[in-house]
Design a protein around this nucleic acid. Structure first.
Length: 424
DNA sequence: ATGCTCCTGCGAA
DNA sequence: CTAACGTTCGCAGGAGCAT
């Protein structure tokens, strides 16, 4: 059963180029939050040898030399364009799994196997024309093979022009191709496992494909065995369609500059909890506990280091921002240590379950739940109508000096008419 | 021996 | 001028505990 993996090329950079064509043909990087390090690179930047995750301050010199254009990440824009790409791709298959912001799997079972490469080209042309984003298509009998085929398509391996269909290869050609690909390119094989495999002299995809599953099970984990099966065309990882809500919700950020006082940390924690609670309500879930963490900057080795977290159980599972914030701030107070340079804080909502299934406590006030629901409904409605944080809780503060740096951000072209006009 | 919860490591984008 | 290094999610598996 063939599966396609469609992946956008240099997605964030491609989004920026769509609304600013002057960036076309030039070296462009998009930076992570806080303008920290490279998370998306144009081909020109890759050619200069700049690696994924390279810190911005360390590439400033080479950037000046080659006129690299750096941009802060603009998730409002990328999220919006992602939704357009996914909606377009949904037309090409009855079953779609949106795997990340820039890629999805499509079930191509039932299509004529001989025409799949052609179909892949049609997908590419349609997305490019309708949305403006370039994509590559990989096709294989399992999700792992589809991912690998996509890698080949991106690299232009085995004569592929943006589309690679492993179904077209006979076993001889496939072996040759797999022998030329380092094992670390396989989905599920990261740094550690690549190291471990190298010790066993398993270095290419072909080496891994032919390795003994029993031996790998003993040396590694069941996950790697599944990967090997998938490389051999035996499906072990199902296509998952949307529906199952998340099991945990994390919101955390590094600060724009370090924070020492409890006040500043409290504001940040209240703010992240507000964001997390919004996601929670969007999922239709409630949380049983909230974890709060703070930490100093491990890269500043001269600073005293400190990293603590605490789980605060809620008396009753809830999706109420005010209750979650109260608990989070109690937790924060208990782990706060004065006179340190904190670099980051965050919250994690845990023990999530469906809202309908709330366990009630013996001493419930029956009027309380509807009151809370009504308040959250009003809060969400106003913010949806008037914009994020039009109405928010006082504990988040107003100055937010800890807010992250985004000095190089482009406009919100697709979600704010004034910013679009400004860009013209 | 079995089943849980909590925590860490790993991988992914 | 200096210092400046991301975020969010799931899964596996071991430790620790209770039964």
């Amino acid at each position: 059963m063939p599966i396609a993996l469609v992946d956008c090329n240099n997605f964030y950079v491609s989004c920026e180029r769509m609304f600013n064509p002057k960036l076309e043909g030039k070296p462009v990087v998009v930076l992570s939050n806080n303008d920290g390090c490279a998370v998306s690179r144009s081909n020109e930047v890759k050619a200069l040898g700049i690696k994924m995750g390279e810190p911005w301050f360390r590439m400033k010199d080479i950037s000046k030399q080659h006129g690299i254009i750096a941009l802060s990440s603009n998730y409002t824009l990328y999220g919006d364009l992602s939704a357009r790409v996914m909606a377009t791709l949904a037309n090409f298959s009855p079953q779609q799994e949106i795997y990340s912001i820039d890629e999805c799997f499509l079930d191509l079972g039932g299509f004529d196997p001989k025409t799949l490469a052609e179909y892949g080209q049609k997908i590419r042309k349609t997305v490019k024309r309708n949305v403006g984003i370039p994509v590559c298509v990989g096709i294989g009998d399992t999700k792992t093979l589809a991912k690998l085929a996509n890698h080949c398509a991106k690299k232009g391996l085995s004569g592929s022009d943006g589309v690679c269909d492993f179904g077209q290869l006979n076993s001889q050609r496939r072996s040759e191709l797999f022998s030329s690909i380092p094992v670390g390119e396989v989905w599920g094989v990261g740094r550690k496992i690549t190291e471990g495999l190298a010790k066993l002299n398993i270095k290419t995809v072909e080496d891994l494909r032919r390795a003994s599953p029993e031996y790998l099970r003993q040396q590694f984990s069941i996950v790697l065995v599944k990967t090997v099966n998938e490389l051999n065309g035996i499906p072990c990882i199902e296509l998952e369609e949307a529906g199952t809500p998340r099991q945990q919700i994390m919101v955390s950020r590094s600060f724009g500059s370090s924070v020492s006082a409890l006040d500043g940390l409290s504001e940040s924690v209240a703010h992240y909890t507000t964001r997390a609670a919004e996601k929670l309500r969007r999922d239709g879930s409630i949380a049983a506990s909230i974890c709060v963490f703070i930490r100093t900057n491990p890269f500043r080795e001269k600073d005293e280091q400190y990293s603590r977290s605490i789980v605060v159980p809620l008396l009753q599972s809830t999706d109420d921002t005010t209750k979650l914030v109260k608990s989070a701030l109690i937790g924060l107070k208990s782990i706060y240590k004065p006179a340190l340079n904190y670099a980051k804080s965050g919250v994690l909502l845990m023990g999530l379950h469906e809202k309908g299934s709330a366990q009630r406590t013996l001493f419930d006030d029956p009027a309380e739940q509807p009151r809370s629901d009504k308040l959250m409904y009003v809060l969400d409605s106003i913010n949806q109508k008037m914009g994020k944080d039009s109405l928010t809780i006082g504990a988040s503060g107003t100055k937010q000096r800890w807010a992250m740096r985004r000095e190089l951000k482009s406009q919100n072209y697709t979600s704010d008419i004034n910013e679009l006009l400004e860009a013209w």
